[in-house]
Design a protein around this nucleic acid. Sequence first.
DNA 1: TTTTGAGTTGTTCGA
DNA 2: GTCGAACAACTCAAA
Length: 452
Amino acid sequence: MPTTVLWLRRDLRLADHPALVEAHRAAGAGGEVVPLFCLDERLWGPAGANRRAFLVSCLRALDESIGRHLIVRTGDPLEVVAAVAAEVGATQVFAEWDFGPYGNERDEAVSRALEQRGRALVRAGSPYAVEPGAVLNGSGQPYKVFTPFSKAWLAHGWPSSIKAPAAVRWASGLATDELPEVAATATTLPEPGEAAAKRVARRFFDTDLAGYDEQRNAPGLDATSRLSPYLKWGCIHPRQLLQELGSSQAERTFRSELCWREFYADVLHHRPETVRHAFNPAMAAMEVDHRGTDGVFEAWCQGRTGYPIVDAGMRQLVGEGWVHNRVRMLTASFLVKDLHLDWTRGARFFMKHLVDGDLASNQHGWQWVAGTGTDASPYFRIFNPVTQGERFDRGGTYVRRWVPELAAVNDKYVHHPWDDPAGAPTAYPAPIVDHAEEREESLRRYAAVRGR
DNA sequence: TTTTGAGTTGTTCGA
DNA sequence: GTCGAACAACTCAAA
């Protein structure tokens, strides 16, 4: 009676799960599958309380859905995976491909370790519709610009979604570690698990998708899909979303957002060093400040910059572990262009708090704003937090939700309370920098790099 | 090889 | 208030 191991990582679901299908098939009619999650300190440590708490909740949800057969082991996967395989006499361990810099090396090492013991790591599927590395340009090189990538990505296509295999026999009687209790720092987290992911997706398709093209830009409307935390842990696969999409403008726009996730995964796959270093090395010469004692970085982290939409965004990040994408751009732009700090400092703070924190999307989203990345925003594109607030949060619904000090400020001044003739709220900080001045400073620094 | 068209998300200024 | 132009120059990707 053969037993196989299904090593779960970012694929905490049963539907549309190629590695599960393969593990089930290899086990055969009478065989059992061991669903294993390895709590790896290398990933657990840096995850931040919100992402850890959401992960644990998703693991509990998965455990419930398979009759409490999930096996959790804490430790180095190099030892854990081989030990579990030996324990149950499995010759094959199934897992989906991981294209992250750490995950890729880890899997190669685990694969070698298993081979030395006469076993094999079999990989099937990935967290993406199109596997990173699968799309190349006419010269056989990876794409560096989104639009041509997206065309090739669409032309490449992806397989249809597959159903969860029926009647998987999950192995029982194995020792398992207790999942740790994790207290999130955010006040609320999304509902965990595969069923919740499907509900959220269904609600999005039935309500907000129709107006997505326009309304997704307004943080006060909260009309985005809210699917990023589920995509992060694979509670739902992007294929399951893509297959619902037709050709309306709104559907094309949402498909394009999913493609951005795949583009950045592809970029990181080809250039793993861009987790920390500029994708465009020429831009690494840009002068950055290394502030530590004047408190501007802390003011940014705490949402006390005096710019309402920046502060609302940072307070949402800490309070909710999630931020509307436009506001991610605005807060990032403020750190880089107004405070002249290194983008990696901001990216690290985001990763600490985001419940959906994905290394590829986060680092390259930051690089785009900072001007160091793929398809980088032109140097003269510097977000004005007041103009952006008035354009996308007219009336201040969003900023008032997160910055209660602004509750009584007239709509007209809610994005620049310092101009209010009635006086700015005393509890709210004055702007820590002058945007117009710092914009000029950023343009000067860019010119200095360009002139080299 | 050369050429050509295009490139997520913006701001400011002046008419 | 609205609109178009300027903001530079470069790289990418495909023909």
